[in-house]
Simulated assay, not measured.
Amino acid sequence: MTDVNFSDSTSLTAPGGPAEDRMPIDLIELLFFAYRDFTSDPDTILAEFGFGRAHHRVLHFVSRNPGLRVTDLLGILRITKQSLARVLKQLIDEGYILQEPGPVDRRERLLTTTPLGQDLAERLTRLQARRIQRALAAMPEGSHEIARQFLYHMIDPDQRGDVARLIEQS
């Protein structure tokens, strides 16, 4: 496998602008292509079930956080109730997710994956984990932590603490 050396010519600088104004076009485009391929593996399987990426995200976070409240899922995904309702209804109706009232506040809705939902979530996660493992295997020692820090710092600063806690809990 050959590594590509991206030169500074892939970053754009405003005419006459300082180097700190340079835009990392190479990284922007690499993120677009990486995301395309990262999601393409699960997309193929999801299509077999009539599901899309929204279903995948719901399955992922519910499987990693059994008993997740619907309100917390809305915060994680940053989508409207209306958007979630359609996807969640389909996953519940088809037996991938269970929705139960909270033990204290019966208005709360708690989500868990069924065995069918857990199996699908794990299948999709394995596909994406293999892609990440292949990429990290081609990188120098310590790249996992560098990639982890890079992605963490791509998250809005006011959300980083919540994301770190969610990942630790899962």
Rank of each mutant, 00 (worst) to 15 (best):
T2R: 13
V4C: 05
N5M: 13
N5I: 14
S7L: 13
D8N: 12
S9R: 13
A14F: 06
A14T: 08
G16K: 09
P18W: 07
A19K: 14
E20L: 10
D21L: 12
R22W: 02
P24N: 11
D26H: 11
D26T: 07
I28L: 09
E29Y: 04
E29W: 01
L30C: 07
L30N: 10
L31N: 12
L31R: 09
L31Q: 12
F33S: 09
Y35C: 04
R36G: 05
D37Q: 03
D37I: 01
F38V: 01
F38P: 00
T39M: 00
T39E: 04
T39F: 00
D43Y: 07
T44P: 01
T44G: 03
I45N: 02
I45V: 13
L46R: 13
E48D: 15
F49Q: 15
F49P: 05
F51H: 14
G52H: 14
G52E: 15
G52P: 14
G52R: 15
G52Y: 13
H55W: 08
H56N: 14
R57T: 08
V58Q: 08
V58A: 06
V58N: 00
F61S: 01
S63E: 08
N65D: 00
N65F: 01
R69G: 02
R69D: 05
R69I: 02
V70S: 05
V70F: 02
T71W: 01
D72T: 12
L74R: 00
I76L: 05
R78H: 09
S83Y: 06
S83D: 08
A85D: 05
V87Q: 07
V87L: 08
Q90Y: 06
L91H: 03
D93W: 05
E94G: 03
Y96Q: 15
I97M: 07
L98R: 09
L98S: 10
E100G: 01
E100I: 06
E100R: 11
G102D: 10
P103V: 11
V104S: 10
V104G: 05
V104N: 09
R106K: 12
R107H: 03
E108F: 03
R109L: 08
R109H: 00
L110S: 01
L110D: 00
T113E: 04
P115D: 14
G117I: 14
L120D: 04
A121K: 01
R123E: 07
L124T: 08
T125W: 11
R126E: 10
R126S: 09
L127A: 05
L127Q: 13
L127N: 07
L127E: 13
A129V: 06
R130T: 13
R131P: 00
A135F: 06
L136C: 06
A137P: 02
A138P: 00
M139L: 07
E141A: 15
E141F: 09
G142L: 04
G142Y: 00
S143F: 01
R148N: 13
H153K: 07
M154Q: 12
D156N: 14
D156R: 15
D156T: 10
D156W: 09
P157N: 11
Q159P: 01
G161L: 15
V163L: 14
A164H: 15
L166M: 15
L166T: 10
E168Q: 12
Q169D: 12
S170F: 05
